[in-house]
Nucleic acid binder design. Structure first.
Lengths: 147, 147
DNA sequence: GTATCTAGTGTATAAAATGCACCATAGTGT
DNA sequence: ACACTATGGTGCATTTTATACACTAGATAC
C-alpha cells in the first residue's frame, strides 16, 4: 500500500514516539530493579502478562476486531484466512473468557453472534497498533508514495 | 511491584500517549481503505506482519532479551522457566533467521554463545514495551505505592 | 576418575491446530 | 416436495508444535 509522504512521516513519527515511550517505561522499571524485583521477576511478569497472547491466532483475532470492528463468526473466518472453524471457535471462547472480546447473541431467526472488543481489548489493540505498523513498514507492505 | 505515585503516573501517561499514537496510526490507515486495500488486505497484512510472533515463546524471548540484555543459552533457559532446551534452541534459531536476534559465538574454551537483540529486535521490544506495561498494571503486578 | 560447565540434539509423548464432515434451524428457489 | 443457501458452531482423525527427559562432546576442577 502506498501512502503519501505526509502520512508516511506521521506514521513514522508516531512509531518513533512510541519507541521513546517504550524506552522511558523500560528505564522506570529498571530503576526498581533490586533483590526482590530483579530481572527474574520482570521476565516472569512479562511472560505472564503475555500468556494470553502467546498462542497462535489470539493476537490475530484481536487485530482483526480492532481493524475491522465487530464481526460475526463466519465473517471472521473469511477474514482470518487459514483458520479452521474449530480453532476460531476455541480461540474466541478463550478471548471472551479473558475479557478481551464480548460475545453478543442477537436472537433471530437466524440467530447471529457478534464478536466485538471490550474496552480492555480495544486498549490492547491500540497498544499493539504501532508495532503492527512498524512491521508493515519493515516488510515494505506500506511504502511512501513515489512521485 | 510497588512504584511511586510519580512513576506510576509517568507510566500511565506514556501508555495513554501510546494509545493515542495507535489511534492516529489506525485512522491514517483507515483513510486509505478502498477496493484494493480494504479490510481484507489490512487483516492479511497484520496477520502476516505478526506471523513471526504468533507462536509460543517468540515474544517471550524478545521480551527477555529486551529486559535482561544479552544472555547466554543456559541463562535464557533459567529466565524463561518452563521452556525446554529443545524448544529454546529451535526458537532462537527462528528468531535469528528472522533478524530479531544475533547469535554471537565467543570462542573459548569453553565456547560461549551470546544472544542479543538486533536493532530490529530492539525496536520491536520497545514497541512492545507499553503493551507489556499495560498488561502488568491491568493484572495488578505493578501497583501505585500506598503511603 | 568423577563431577561440572558449556550449548545444544534425539526421541517419545502430549498438546494444539487443521481439514473435513456434519448438525439443527430457517429461508429461498424451481 | 426437494434441493440449496446461510447461520454458528461440534466431532473426530490427522498433522504440526511443544514438552520431558535422556544424552552428547570438549574442557576444567577436585
Amino acid at each position: 500500500m502506498e501512502i503519501t509522504h505526509e502520512d508516511f512521516k506521521k506514521v513514522e513519527t508516531a512509531i518513533n514516539d512510541v519507541k521513546e515511550e517504550g524506552r522511558q517505561i523500560r528505564s522506570i522499571f529498571d530503576s526498581y530493579s533490586d533483590e526482590n524485583f530483579g530481572i527474574d521477576w520482570e521476565v516472569d511478569a512479562a511472560v505472564d502478562a503475555f500468556s494470553i497472547f502467546s498462542s497462535r491466532w489470539t493476537i490475530e483475532i484481536l487485530a482483526t476486531l480492532y481493524i475491522a470492528g465487530e464481526r460475526r463468526f463466519n465473517e471472521m473466518r473469511k477474514l482470518l484466512r487459514g483458520i479452521s472453524s474449530r480453532t476460531l471457535s476455541d480461540k474466541l471462547t478463550k478471548c471472551s473468557e479473558s475479557g478481551l472480546v464480548d460475545r453478543v447473541v442477537e436472537d433471530g431467526p437466524p440467530i447471529r453472534v457478534i464478536y466485538r472488543l471490550t474496552d480492555h481489548g480495544r486498549d490492547a489493540g491500540r497498544l499493539l497498533g504501532p508495532l503492527v505498523a512498524y512491521m508493515k513498514i519493515h516488510q515494505d507492505r506500506v511504502v511512501r508514495h513515489s512521485q
